[in-house]
Amino acid sequence: MNLLASEWIKARSVRGTWLLAASTVVVTVVVSLIGVSGLLADWRAALPSDFDPTAIAFKGVLVGQLLLATLGAQLITGEYASGQITTSLTVAPRRAALLVSKLAVAVLLALVTAVVTVAASFGASQAALGAAGLPTADPTDPATVRALACATAYLVLTAVLGLAFGTLTRSSSGALAIVVAVALLVPALAPGLPGALGDLAATYWPTTAGQSSYATVASGRLPALTGLAVMAVFTLWTTLAAHASLRVRDA
């Protein structure tokens, strides 16, 4: 509990934490609305047959996840950048306990941020769709509720992933580069790979699988919870690797 309190003080006492949390909400909402307006511009020609009013509300997650991952990474890369890590590890030489405390703070911050982000993005997008006379999602529909929960969980996982990459790279820019590659570049490029490899990447790549969890119209890929589970397992393994690295390497 002591370490948790300590990590909470560290996180709340730097402005970057709050800036990243606030920009996650704002940027996600804005990008989702841009997605909706892009749809409005040409829907009369052809509303896609698999139009999913829930999933479109989370277009902004593509960008918001980067900010939330950076928030997670900062919890430890900030310490390496300043050299504070030596003080932290002197006071708390049990490295696993330090990492677990940071994970707890990351999950807490990300959960609050993700709930607000998902609610705001969903609300704004449905309002925009409704105003344009398009079909909207029913927030009482179990499938919609599940999508909202999955989007929230996905965002929390990206923050944990950010912390894990931050622990492995010890650098904010290094962690961000990996997050961008994992969350944006590979999903964009890998499906272009030939044959089974491309199919595999398009289905099972962790962030792609995770993102498919908040669609309500089956996209012919993984069932929602399976997708989220793939992302969760990937996050777990990365976190275990981060733990091993923190324990073995000199500080």
Binding site: I9, K10, S13, V14, G16, Q84
Partner: peptide, 18 residues
């Protein structure tokens, strides 16, 4: 080795808590 944006009090509070 101090976070430049953290106040002296918060820095010590974090260490004291840990």
């Amino acid at each position: 080795a101090l976070h430049p944006r953290r106040t002296a009090r918060d820095h010590l509070a974090a260490v004291a808590a840990a």
